[in-house]
């Protein structure tokens, strides 16, 4: 039904989408995980309360999350050019994706870590555990299941964002859907890209949930 060129293009699109999503999530966690940890421990009832640090991170997270992603994409063009050297294509899209993902991930991590039983943290403190030990050996371990669920949700969200980046030449399945489906009225191709995007989200979700259930030792 499609020419081999179109199929080639779709395969390339899947590759680009996966590349953007996975790389953005990875870099997002590189910054978002520490930010979420800092938010958790610096909060008033955290293990290292620090109201100034908490307020600063809190405000940053809220500001970035309030800006619509498309606006962020455009505003960040000079910054993207500075880092990647160009402002279009999949690699360039990773920059605004990471910027948008970091505060989102930080909030996810924060809410996961908050679920950890305060009693277990107190027990670790009573054993003389340092803040660092409590974070690495108690918080992250006990919140493991919830953190993995967070990664799963984040992957789905970033996949959606990456498709949005297609509107400004970001590459990937979103780009194809816009160019062929929207500008050229090729409904068939658009439908296929949308189905592919749904399948990808479905796959991430299934793997993530299976993993989190398998790793949960609470039952």
């Amino acid at each position: 039904m499609f020419s081999s060129e179109v199929i080639q293009m779709l395969i390339k699109g899947i590759g680009e989408t996966l590349y953007m999503t996975l790389a953005s999530t990875l870099f997002g966690y590189l910054f978002g995980l520490p930010m979420g940890i800092l938010l958790t421990i610096s909060d008033r009832d955290g293990i290292r309360p620090n109201s100034i640090l908490y307020k600063i991170l809190d405000v940053i997270a809220n500001i970035v999350r309030s800006v619509p992603f498309l606006i962020l994409l455009i505003v960040l063009i000079p910054f993207t050019r500075l880092i990647v050297g160009k402002s279009y294509g999949s690699t360039a899209t990773i920059v605004p994706l990471v910027v948008a993902a970091v505060p989102y991930i930080a909030r996810m991590v924060e809410s996961s870590l908050r679920e950890v039983d305060a009693g277990v943290i107190e027990a670790a403190r009573s054993m003389g555990a340092s803040t660092f030990t409590i974070v690495t050996k108690v918080l992250l371990v006990e919140a493991r299941t919830s953190l993995i669920v967070g990664v799963t949700i984040t992957l789905g969200t970033i996949l959606g964002y990456s498709a949005m980046a297609g509107t400004v030449g970001g590459g990937g399945l979103g780009d194809i859907a816009i160019r062929y489906g929207y500008y050229r009225y090729e409904v068939g191709i658009m439908a296929v890209t949308v189905v592919l995007l749904i399948l990808l989200v479905q796959i991430f979700q299934t793997i993530g949930m299976k993993l989190s259930v398998r790793l949960d030792k609470r039952k």
Partner: peptide, 11 residues
């Protein structure tokens, strides 16, 4: 402690 406070994810 009253509620034992064990690490639930560790054996």
């Amino acid at each position: 402690f009253q509620h034992f406070n064990l690490l639930m994810q560790k054996n």
